[in-house]
């Protein structure tokens, strides 16, 4: 034990054993000052943290599975992702998200070359590689080589479209329903849809594959 436990712990117990960095202290200070000035409330901060934790690729997977079984829903999704997600009780946020559909002739990939814009309100926070220099630099220049690093081979006769996200418009890939999934219900279909499929760096696996 680094110290005795006669006092209550004000912070996360696992964190206080390590020294606080400059930017961690800045985060804590900014949060406290915003609350004290009445700009945000502690309750709003808590609720927002809870909302961040509630977002995961499962939300996007439900949307994709519904689109696979319901052509009318898919049509609405391609027009307005945020509104379509709302039908499933998913709040995808206020920044518009556009769905780009993979077909027999087109495969889509998303990136944000300038920073890390990502449909985080629909599929959760991005993986580190999405924010890394290697992905951001190369995805727009040699996407087939980048996909190969994910073990994904897109045939040469399939057009590859790379979508560069912005602060005001995010993308999600609507993957193609995999072969062999004909007998699955919506919930089982959603299980096939991973985060990386919705970024476009992998394809949904056929059931049992």
């Amino acid at each position: 034990m680094a110290h005795d436990h006669s006092h209550p712990h004000p912070h996360q117990p696992d964190l206080e054993e390590t020294p606080l960095t400059h930017y961690q202290a800045m985060t804590e200070a900014v949060g406290q000052l915003l609350i004290e000035k009445g700009i945000i409330t502690g309750e709003e901060l808590r609720a927002t943290l809870e909302s961040i934790d509630s977002k995961s690729p499962a939300g996007g997977a439900r949307v994709v599975a519904r689109a696979w079984v319901d052509p009318d829903f898919k049509a609405r999704l391609l027009v307005d992702v945020n509104k379509a997600a709302e039908e499933l009780g998913i709040d995808a946020g206020i920044i518009p998200i556009r769905a780009v559909e993979n077909t027999a002739g087109v495969h889509n990939v998303i990136v944000c070359t300038l920073c890390s814009c990502y449909p985080r309100n629909l599929i959760g926070l991005p993986p580190d590689w999405y924010k890394a220099r290697s992905y951001r630099s190369r995805a727009v220049r040699e996407p087939r080589a980048v996909l190969a690093e994910f073990g994904t081979a897109i045939p040469d006769d399939v057009e590859l479209r790379v979508h560069d996200s912005t602060a005001d418009l995010r993308y999600m890939v609507l993957p193609a329903r995999p072969a062999g999934s004909e007998g699955l219900d919506e919930a089982a279909l959603a299980e096939l849809v991973t985060r990386d499929c919705m970024i476009g760096v992998t394809l949904p696996k056929s059931p049992g594959a």
Partner: peptide, 21 residues
């Protein structure tokens, strides 16, 4: 500096440290 689209860079490591941050 941040405008890196299309530049050369090393390989993407999908399973590297922090892949599942």
């Amino acid at each position: 500096h941040h405008d890196m689209g299309g530049l050369d860079a090393g390989p993407v490591d999908p399973s590297g440290p922090g892949a599942e941050h």
